[in-house]
Design a protein around this nucleic acid. Structure first.
Lengths: 320, 320
DNA sequence: GTGAAAGCGCTAACAA
DNA sequence: TTGTTAGCGCTTTCAC
């Protein structure tokens, strides 16, 4: 059913290499022949087999996109954007979910390696050393993590955290709970870094936590008990879980406790109260990651994207 | 850097075909040789090139998953599940977003065809005729749509709609607004079919609408004005938008109007009031779709998955 | 049980 | 401008 270059060649009485040329170097073939070939190809519904082509050229026109959890609402917009950008460059993208498991992540990368021109690693859970090792076999662009000498798309979490802390301080909050994410998360570390140098604030640290609603729900009692009047959560999901847990204890947000999340995901925008959050430029990040991967020239380039505080309804003046 | 079958062959002094056999038909090779080959392969970090293998075997161990909008919260769990199931079968999956554009959808399928063993079409926007045509070149499994003779994974929307309507009737609602989705949506049609045969209920129809929060927000005034005491929305996003629009008009849910959505997406679970909804088995659908695609025997098999009403907080007794 | 040879669909020198 | 040839990495007869 599916026609090959041979069929086309036979159909218009030329050699296969001529057909090949019409597609990969059209200017090298006689206009008349070219149009004959094109007509025949169109007629047969011929499409070059990209995998076969890759065997000789070394370029697959495929890329991998590896992510810890597709259903974390933070990722879909990023995936969508990356996928769209890739399509614009005639690339297909393998999307793989590691289920937060480093072993799965490693195995996925290994099996993908030969089939792609590069892979986008989003918030990887693998160690730096392992990533560096794997990078010997396939080009990476890392999103949300900094690894020396490796192209990366970073979001300015520190900036966002400062914005958030300033906002809270401005509302009269002093004792603030910092609810972090999983161990080894780059984002978490950045947040803590900012917290460590925050002057005049009394920060209480909680972690590690699952980066999910459940994680937030679980720490809610501790957070409530610590005497903080505000909390900065690892991400919106955690923040939302936290709010829910607080509500179960009849603690109102923002009346009794203010809550800020990170990411700006859809559920936060729809929540009541609407979540105050640090918006992460996921769409832009997806696009940039693809560009960085494809412009082989820019080795080691690191892009840092701005974040922004979006004040909505989950933060308010500290109760006195 | 990346080693091939040749490298392994040379490393342990056997012919490439022996190495090939060790991986694809281990029982045909002498145990002693086998372990020598395996050792060498491991040593060199050899991984078979799947694309090259596909060239001879005709099986790529790749599949495509095409979806209209990755960032619609309904899809990520389905994608994740499909991806996980595929991984368990040693398959990789190309995920592509069509941006709701049929042309993009067609082009994507065409370029993917040679590179995959089959494709999962989720809520496709293409015409039946076109899908049937494309199916000549690559096996499909369609999700959320019925096309004669084509394997499909359906969710029992009609059942869910009946459940929802019964629930509302039981709460004393008679005049119920039906807020539909886009034109030509299979799901919308199913819902309307059920509505048409609902006895003793006074249904008011609104549509078509965008399948988003904005769509719900936009119809809120009309719905409020129509005198209905309850509404069945096309999906959760629409329901959420509706609730927000109603709130803006100071109409309380469920005190003044009850609202039911479809899908059971995360934002609905986190919303206040928590959304009453008809849960769609997205995870199961993703898994089943993969299974259907892979069990080539089951041609034309159609699976219909049950839906379930999840009563939460957005529905209550009709006000009298 | 293992090697030799052909071929999958395509590209890339090299000739003609 | 076009055809010839070789080969990408792998599998699969077919001999041995």
């Amino acid at each position: 059913m599916a026609s090959t270059i041979k069929d086309v060649a036979r159909a218009c009485g030329v050699h296969v290499s001529t057909v090949s040329r019409t597609f990969s170097a059209p200017h090298l073939v006689n206009p008349a022949t070219r149009s004959r070939v094109l007509a025949a190809a169109d007629d047969l519904g011929y499409r070059p087999n990209r995998a076969a082509r890759a065997l000789t050229t070394g370029r697959t026109f495929n890329m991998g996109l590896i992510v810890a959890d597709i259903s974390n609402p933070f990722f879909p917009p990023l995936i969508k954007a990356a996928q769209a950008q890739a399509r614009g460059r005639d690339y297909h993208v393998f999307v793989a979910d590691t289920d937060e498991d480093p072993r799965v992540e490693e195995e996925l990368i290994r099996t993908l390696t030969k089939q792609v021109d590069g892979v986008l690693l989003c918030s990887p859970r693998l160690s730096n050393k392992m990533i560096e090792r794997l990078a010997e076999d396939v080009p990476f662009v890392v999103v949300n993590r900094r690894i020396k000498g490796m192209p990366a798309v970073l979001m300015n979490v520190a900036q966002g955290a400062r914005l958030a802390l300033d906002h809270l301080a401005g509302l009269g909050h002093h004792r603030i709970a910092l609810v972090s994410g999983p161990i080894g998360s780059w984002t978490s570390n950045e947040m803590q870094g900012v917290a460590a140098e925050a002057a005049g604030l009394d920060l209480v640290f909680f972690g590690p936590n699952q980066p999910t609603e459940a994680g937030g729900l679980a720490v809610a009692p501790e957070v409530a008990a610590c005497g903080a009047t505000a909390v900065l959560a690892y991400n919106d999901l955690v923040a939302l879980g936290l709010i829910e847990g607080l509500a179960a204890m009849e603690i109102g947000v923002p009346d009794q406790i203010s809550v800020i999340g990170f990411d700006d995901i859809l559920p936060g925008r729809l929540n009541r109260p609407k979540l105050t959050t640090v918006a992460m430029p996921a769409v832009q990040a997806g696009r940039m990651a693809v560009d960085l991967l494809l412009q082989s020239g820019g080795e080691g380039a690191t892009v840092t994207l701005d974040t922004a505080l979006i004040v909505r309804e989950s933060t308010g003046r500290a109760q006195t």
